[in-house]
Design a protein around this nucleic acid. Structure first.
Length: 305
DNA sequence: TATCCAAGGTAAGTT
DNA sequence: AACTTACCTTGGATA
């Protein structure tokens, strides 16, 4: 067992662990106390969270378990690898200068309120394939249930990893999910998303396409590239670009943001997805529009207005 | 107790 | 290219 702490004071712009992993950007973390995504708990929790880093992401033999919590100005961690601080930095974007990002965003009242409410929340940098699958599952679904689907997929198809006397499950690899049948996946309550997940996993497993390849393309071409996966339209593609592939300008146009656009930025209501996307990106600032989107999404979803 | 509805959309079929 | 409709599942609201 390796362990240590990371002082939050050394992270420009601070950090809010709970807001970062429970804001609906990622479904790949879990809470040790089982309260993940419960809407009635107080914010500012110091609960332990954990995730399993896929072996493929770092090219090692075994998936690695990373546990972390935020308390008394530190991120405390313990993990199966001494490299945990570097992985936490990668997964939770601790390398972002949050102060500079917030300064770069335009002075919009709604945005100011969202930043004020959850200052310290960072975007995540999920591994590409798990991110792709989790957002295929997100279609017409509530956050608690998306998380449940991902948990069941890991328990059913992922590699078991023992750490600290407990058993954790890595997110399944493309090959592991490609071998599942539609019926198997429907039994995990994926509903009509079941064949989408199976066929997309097959595309990645056979190297027909690779979500990580989108990283090499320009933003709109990258979004187009990702829509070749089954179950992936513009919205899910934008989620993968923003929450996994470092396209901080991507603005997923989900129902919450659509409503926000109608209410707060009617001029940005365009003729189609691409048109609205360009307009809201201009409104939120070309470089970090995705950061602005995520703060606004979480702020509205938790009752702000 | 039964019915209805919406939840971070997408694919397939029609104009 | 723009517009409709069907699609799994489930918890909570409504009758």
């Amino acid at each position: 067992m390796h362990e240590g702490t990371i002082p939050v004071a050394e992270l420009p712009g601070g950090f809010d662990m709970q807001a970062t992993v429970e804001s609906g950007q990622t479904y790949l973390w879990d809470r040790a106390d089982g309260g993940m995504f419960e809407d009635d708990h107080a914010w500012g929790s110091d609960a332990w969270y954990h995730t399993v880093l896929p072996a493929t992401l770092i090219d090692i033999d075994e998936p690695q378990v990373i546990r972390a919590r935020q308390r008394d100005g530190h991120v405390e961690w313990n993990a199966s690898t001494p490299e945990a601080p570097a992985y936490l930095t990668h997964l939770l974007r601790l390398d972002d200068n949050l102060d500079a990002i917030v300064d770069d965003c335009p002075d919009l009242p709604l945005l100011e309120r969202a930043f004020a409410e959850y200052r310290g929340m960072r975007l995540v940098r999920d591994p590409p394939f798990p991110c792709l699958v989790s957002f295929i599952c997100s279609a017409q679904m509530r956050v608690e249930r998306i998380h449940g689907m991902c948990t069941r997929l890991a328990q059913q198809y992922g590699d078991a990893v023992s750490f600290g006397g407990d058993t954790y499950f890595a997110f399944p690899t493309p090959a592991q999910l490609a071998d599942a049948t539609e019926t198997d996946l429907r039994d995990l309550s994926l509903g009509y998303r079941a064949p989408y997940v199976q066929r997309t996993a097959e595309m990645v497993a056979t190297r027909e396409a690779d979500p990580a390849h989108a990283r090499d393309l320009d933003y709109e071409a990258a979004r187009e590239y990702l829509t070749q996966f089954v179950g992936v339209g513009d919205k899910v593609a934008d989620c993968v670009l923003l929450f996994s592939l470092d396209f901080l300008e991507a603005v997923p146009l989900d129902t919450w943001i659509q409503t926000a656009i109608e209410e707060y930025y009617p001029d940005c209501d365009g003729d189609n997805y691409a048109d609205t996307s360009r307009k809201i990106r201009r409104q939120f600032g070309d470089r970090y529009a995705g950061y602005a989107q995520t703060y606004v999404f979480f702020y509205l979803r938790t009752g702000g207005e």
